[in-house]
Amino acid sequence: MNAPPAAIGAAFAAILRRDLTLAYRHRGEIANPLVFFLIVITMVPLGVSPDPQLLATLAPGIIWVVALLSTLLALDGLFRSDFEDGSLEQLLISPQPLYLMVLAKVLAHWLVTGLPLTLMAPLLGVMLSLPAAGYLPLCLSLLLGTASLSLIGAIGAALTVALRKGGLLLSLIIMPLYAPVLIFGAGAVRSAVDGFPFAPQIAILGALLALAAVLAPLASAAALRISIDG
């Protein structure tokens, strides 16, 4: 007996709504990665050099690397609190496809980390004197890229959720998987700044996102079952 589609949609919405409400109630924690992003980017001209030309060369890479590290900061909490209060068990035995439940959680996570990072990025581009041609590819690549980062990161978060100190392990597992996203994301911005078309990199980021959206929740769901079973 399969659950009717309406029930699946309702469950998806229930999880999304709950996670967004929780994020709103813990605003301080959500602001943490954003503040980190802002602080590091502000420090770069002070620490490296205020020379606009040098900063413009560094900008695409630095913004992307810091955005990536910021998403990593928030990742550990994705399933942690649900694990600690027992809600994760309830999620695993709800009569709904775990794939969609994980997708709902990741979507909520991206809406409160990746999306604000993307929206903040142009402002930080100005601070690093990013050339005008770089803003559109910066936003597009971060929009697609941070979504992939959240999806891929969920696998690591699911694998390490039952470990008491999973933070370091999480970074080690996830970093290699983040590398392609970083390469094409920063590459898109650099191409545009250098006056080349950036569509190919954006297309690859889109493909990565499509792949991650299909496969990553499957892997996360399986990892959650293993973590809970232990």
Binding site: I15, R18, Q90, L91
Partner: peptide
């Protein structure tokens, strides 16, 4: 019902129960 109550402390009792009934069928 596990030995942990599975109740989110930042949410109200009503919101917690809405989540549970939303996930069930």
């Amino acid at each position: 019902l596990g030995h942990l109550p599975s109740v989110k402390k930042a949410l109200s009792p009503r919101e917690n129960l809405q989540w549970f009934s939303g996930m069930g069928s």
